[in-house]
């Protein structure tokens, strides 16, 4: 299989900080690569180099077989880019935005109109097509932005944190749109802070931190490295943390993590909901005062804790954990 994106030893410095310290990665034609990492890890820098917005200081990068430095102009006609902040002109209507970008991709006026119409329909923007983008919700803007990057049917699509800042409902919708694109054979490089997102959309993943690749593989391979699911709970009394960890020891296959500050306890388990049920049974007679207990699949924080020994800084904590947690009630329904 041929590669749509090849990156070798990519280096980029901003003043004294090293944004990329020699990154290697490849994306096979027609697949999705999830580029994971916390804020400031270098994800966006990689996308900016690959989309010819930024010159690298060293190394080499090819998109669709073209060098991003020496053949930048040709690269631009092969790619679509959706940045972190929806780059739509808010004074133009949805349709005008798409037609403008289509024209700038050198489509004929007629073809740009036709494609704009198709994309408005596809991204469910037909009703809002003649309204200035200023009036759009965050999710609509993001859809319009992705529509714009698709107008000339790019061979390689870069999606830089396509769902950051979207509410959960828009995020789900966005995932469906991206999954459809994948089904049509578009090669996609997707950056995200959320393992769950990469899990849903990406064939392979590359995890970076401080400008270096720290892990790569499929979702399953990464999860195996991270160590599977964890049982997490919050206790009423921090003094009970040790006792509860001890009570659960037979269930776990690793070291529990205790945090007295938040009165939280997290232990690696296997066996899914059964482990949760067993834990509840064991804690039944215990006077620990469990306020909250749940089974959580590994997320990016776990990847980072496991791989680097430090948490993903700048990651938004509470929301994301809630979403990926299987709560007791949800577990009981299965």
């Amino acid at each position: 299989m041929s590669y749509a994106v090849v990156v070798e030893g990519l280096l980029k410095r901003f003043g004294k900080t090293t944004a990329l310290g020699g990154v290697d990665l490849t994306v096979s034609e027609g697949t999705v690569l999830g580029l994971l990492g916390p804020n400031g890890a270098g994800k966006t820098t990689i996308v900016r180099v690959l989309s010819t917005l930024l010159l690298p200081d060293g190394g080499r990068a090819e998109v669709a077989g073209l060098d991003v430095v020496t053949e930048a102009a040709q690269v631009r006609s092969m790619i679509g880019l959706t940045g972190q902040y929806a780059a739509v002109d808010e004074y133009l209507t949805g349709r005008e935005n798409l037609e403008m970008v289509g024209r700038l991709y050198r489509l004929s006026a007629r073809e740009a109109r036709r494609r704009a119409e198709q994309l408005l329909e596809r991204f469910e923007l037909t009703d809002a097509a003649n309204r200035p983008a200023k009036t759009y919700s965050g999710g609509m803007r993001r859809r319009l932005d992705i529509g714009a990057s698709l107008i000339a049917r790019p061979r390689v699509l870069f999606l830089d944190e396509p769902t950051t800042g979207l509410d959960p409902r828009s995020r789900l919708g966005m995932w469906e749109f991206i999954a459809d694109l994948v089904g049509e054979g578009t090669t996609i490089l997707l950056t995200t802070q959320y393992l769950e997102e990469a899990d849903r959309l990406a064939d392979r993943m590359v995890v970076i931190d401080h400008g270096r690749v720290i892990a790569r593989g499929t979702a399953d391979e990464l999860k195996a490295q991270v160590g599977g699911e964890r049982l997490e709970m919050t206790l009423a009394d921090a003094g009970q943390l040790g006792a509860v960890a001890e009570a659960l020891r037979p269930l776990t296959h690793g070291e529990p993590r205790l945090d007295a500050q938040t009165r939280r306890l997290s232990v690696p388990v296997s066996g899914g909901v059964d482990a949760l049920a067993e834990a509840l049974r064991r804690l039944d007679g215990h006077s620990a005062g469990v306020l909250d207990i749940g089974l959580r699949r590994p997320d990016l924080d776990d990847v980072f804790l496991t791989l680097t020994g430090h948490a993903a800084e700048g990651d938004e904590p509470s929301d994301e954990q809630d979403e990926s947690a299987t709560t007791v009630s949800a577990g009981a329904n299965r």
Partner: peptide
């Protein structure tokens, strides 16, 4: 500021347009 220049710079359009 709004990222529009980034979008334009990623397009195969004229660099002075």
């Amino acid at each position: 500021q709004k990222g529009l220049i980034d979008r334009f710079r990623s397009l195969p359009m004229s660099r002075s347009a």
